[in-house]
């Protein structure tokens, strides 16, 4: 039986690549029985999705802009 510590590591790895079949099975059983690790898995999936939306958020609102000093500096450096 996996410990939560082992399960949490496997869950993080499973975000990046497929796990070997037996590991996957052990993990599914653990997550099914353990609400903390089940919460953790949902949180990792959510984190992935949230990170991907950081750019969309940025382009929708008019937040950070190049300062006029930086803009001039870049214009000169690029020579256009």
């Amino acid at each position: 039986m996996l410990t939560c510590k082992e399960a949490s590591r496997l869950l993080s790895q499973s975000m990046d690549h497929a796990l070997p079949r037996m590991k996957r099975l052990e993990l599914r059983i653990h997550v099914w029985l353990c609400s903390a690790c089940s919460n953790f898995e949902k949180q990792l999936l959510f984190l992935k999705r949230a990170a991907r939306q950081l750019d969309e958020r940025d382009s929708q609102t008019d937040q950070a802009r190049l300062s006029s000093e930086a803009r001039e500096r870049i214009r000169k450096a690029v020579g256009k």
Binding site: T3, C4, K5, E6, S8, S35, A36, C37, N39, F40, K42, Q43, F46
Partner: peptide, 15 residues
């Protein structure tokens, strides 16, 4: 993040 026996120190809560 974990106690010596491999259990969560602070269990992830439901979000």
């Amino acid at each position: 993040f974990f106690a010596e026996d491999g259990h969560w120190d602070h269990k992830p809560a439901s979000w």
